[in-house]
Amino acid sequence: MTAALSLHEATVRRGDVEVLRGASLTVQAREVVGVVGPNGAGKTTLLRAALGLARLSAGRADLAGRDVASLDDARRADLAGYLPQERRVGWNLPAWRIASLGAARKPPALAQAAALKALDRVGLSGLAGRGVLDLSGGERARVLLARLLVTGAPLLVADEPAAGLDPDAQLLSLELFREEAARGAAVVLTLHDLGLAARTCDRLVVVSAGAIVADGAPRDALTSAVLREVFGLEGALEETAAGLTLAARRARS
């Protein structure tokens, strides 16, 4: 089966610095892959490289088996939807209108119907008519998540979708990504909460200093050694009633 996303030895330079070094990664449909790593490790660059938003200085990025650099705007949008970390919204449009922008190329009535449905899924159906700048930061983040859901793309890529959300909304948003995977989508997320990542993702990709240092099932990827060397944490993933959680403290250096 053709991978929804694949990076092969991808390198991205910013000035003289290689912010992504020879990264290789494959993501299949129905898979939820978490990208974790400390601040500045290159997680966002990895996502942007895979989507063709960051230019590769070496290597290759494919979406559904086709070189992303060769795809036109419309074809790329058919293959992948993206939720950037940046949540600034320029104008105070109603929440439903923002969500409907996920289907910018569909007839307005269809886009609106899809938007209302997605707002319902993120638990904001009561706020559909509200100006997005009149919402709280967490509510706005959920409107933007709704916009991503509206794309209905076979690959959903989200940068820090759980940041700034209350615990319930964090779990809800990850549940939604699991639902998307169940309908057949490939999902790639960056997450800072390692416990949450381990609990909800099928696979974790650990990025450190621009390189992928581990890739596998959560327990295989987040070993005690990786926790110590990459995150500076002393501890381990533990199985609890709620699923995997991280029990760790800062390593003394």
Binding site: R48, L51, L53, D72, D73, A74, R76, A77, D78, A80, G81, Y82, L83, P84, E86, R88, V89, G90, W91, L93, I98, L101, A104, R105, L144, R147
Partner: peptide, 22 residues
């Protein structure tokens, strides 16, 4: 006009929207 609406969400979201933003 439809590009202006999309730019409300920033350059990267617009770039991935499928509209010919250029």
């Amino acid at each position: 006009a439809r590009g202006l609406v999309m730019l409300t969400l920033g350059e990267e979201t617009a770039a991935m929207s499928g509209l010919p933003m250029g």
